[in-house]
Amino acid sequence: MRLTRLNYILTAVAFISFFLPPVSAEAQVLTDIKVIHATIGPEQFDSRLKPILHELKSVFKYTSYKLLKEQRFDLNFNQEGRVSLPGNRTLLILPSATGGNRIGYHITIQKSNHLIFQTQVLLKNNSSITIGGPELDSGALLINISGALK
């Protein structure tokens, strides 16, 4: 009988914890960068791009999405992550703050050590943003950045 009651309580605790939001005072942010080469050509894509592929296809004319590189960082706030991109470009990413289930990122793209693009975004936890536009081999370079509080 006691065991049954304990089971009920444990079930309730598990149920409640499922709905609890993540604790906002987390120290690290898991940041995943995917560098994608989008072109018009024979249709192909990497299975790791499946979660965002439909979204990209709904906006862009490109038929082929090739994953060039994937890099993961466990970044502290105000700690910079650096990813080298094709065409002598570099991506710098820095989680700046968190609040309201969003992570603040400062994102910079440099070309030949010259700043060509920078943005400040509030990324939803466990979600992603895509930055695109730089030309690459008769296609375009897309950078998908996803962030999750740890």
Binding site: I52, H54, E55, L56, S58, V59, I116, F117, T119, V121, S128, I129, T130, I131, G132, G133, P134, E135
Partner: peptide, 16 residues
């Protein structure tokens, strides 16, 4: 700045 219809995925597109 684009937002997809289904998943509301945010895309920033800039032309070089």
């Amino acid at each position: 700045i684009i937002e997809t219809q289904k998943e509301k995925h945010t895309i920033i597109w800039f032309s070089e």
